[in-house]
Design a protein around this nucleic acid. Structure first.
Lengths: 229, 229
DNA sequence: GAGCCAGGTAACACAGCGGTAACAAGGTTT
DNA sequence: AAACCTTGTTACCGCTGTGTTACCTGGCTC
């Protein structure tokens, strides 16, 4: 991770925006802000931050559209959405459009900071040859999993799926984005195939596949991969 | 690898020869040169270098014959051939005669240096004369496998294939990279030939070829060599 | 509590990968 | 010249990886 991660905060309530900015600056972030969807979108596209904090209710361009546009531009920094209380369908919709996590207002600043930092933990082992997942080792070069000495080979699909998970930890990953990343957009494959592949991968990775520790499912959306525990 | 690798350059154009020599010397090579095929051959045989840079068009003994003689003398330092532009059949012929790589004139000195270093790196782990694979011993010098007393000779291709496996254990090796390393960058060989050679090698190496212990196949990708078990 | 729906998963189907034997083409040895 | 060795190619076929379908389960809504 960079020494000073860049965060872009798009929020139209000036009081909240100031408070958030101060807090993140104090924590060592390089903070950019926007109080308007259109300006915020331009900033996000031209100077992609390391993480984006995004309100949904915004003037001119709302958070959903902004999110969609960012993802369409193939930018994959993590996005944390701020939703009003009780708008559960907003959460699902936001995650579907490419957000990675959410917080419902009102929220505690400490928890928000924790979540943002967790999202930044991504890419930990992106170029490492080998990644530790619990007590098993994922070896990219060998295309295998190793737990307590014995080697479990991964099929190509399982390998690519896990590689995608590993490079996007702690994030909500939709079936669509998984299909894009692992299967490639070219082939028309049912999204149930993702579930199928996740099942076999769980069988090899999870100590207790019925109670997943690493690959969590998010109903109506997709999956989330957690590393440390 | 040696601290100062020795390179022998055989090239009849004096300007080019001087330029090459200067460049390799500046990069830390111990450089010998010859501008004549017969003299060059004598040098290559009596003082084998770590790598040979070889022009094809040469007085008295041409590059092809020189290459052939070197290999017939069981010398296996890497040979990089310099061919005139557009002589595709020269390339094929050279690789068949035992060259490892080629460059077509005119070429960039940087790329040439990179390729020579790659060739040297290939031989990097080849210093141990003998390697234990399970309960069989791979003897590089004798080019044999020995298990429980009886000696099995390896053909040249099998030898180079196993040498490549041994120096890249626990890694997923694609057919492409295997072709590069073992066959040279010959474009005329089908990747199925790799499978064929793996099969014969398994027959000699694996105690039970049907259930490979050392050479594992990775579907859609290639092979993975495991040493200890 | 009944009904609904998303996801786990077992069963099945099949394309195509890879093992393997047979063949071909040089090259080398006797 | 003939026999042999090495090595690349081809063809056949079994098997595995993968996608789909179907059924089941568990949690949610009303």
């Amino acid at each position: 991770m960079n020494l000073t991660p860049r965060i872009l905060i798009i929020e139209d309530d000036p009081t909240l925006l100031r408070g958030l900015g101060d807090n993140f600056r104090a924590t060592g972030f390089d903070v950019s802000t926007a109080s308007d969807g259109q300006i915020g979108l331009a900033q996000a596209l031209t100077q992609p931050p390391d993480v984006l904090l995004l309100d949904i209710m915004l003037p001119r361009v709302n958070g959903f559209d902004l999110c969609k546009q960012v993802r369409r531009a193939k930018l994959d920094f993590p996005i944390l959405m701020l939703t009003a209380k009780g708008q559960e369908e907003d959460i699902v919709r936001g995650l579907e459009l490419g957000a990675d996590d959410y917080m419902t207002k009102p929220f505690g600043i400490r928890e928000l900071l924790a979540r943002v930092k967790r999202l930044l933990h991504r890419r930990a082992g992106d170029h490492e040859q080998t990644v530790a997942i619990g007590d098993t080792v994922f070896d990219r070069g060998a295309q295998t999993l190793t737990r307590s000495g014995n080697i479990v080979p991964l099929t190509t699909k399982e390998y690519r799926l896990l590689a995608y998970f590993v490079s996007h930890p702690h994030r909500a990953l939709t079936r669509g984005s998984i299909l894009d990343a692992v299967w490639g957009r070219s082939l028309i494959v049912s999204s149930r195939s993702v579930d199928r592949c996740v099942a076999t991968l769980r069988g090899k990775l999870e100590p207790e596949p019925a109670v997943p520790r690493f690959i969590h499912t998010i109903r109506d959306v997709g999956y989330r991969f957690e590393l440390d525990l």
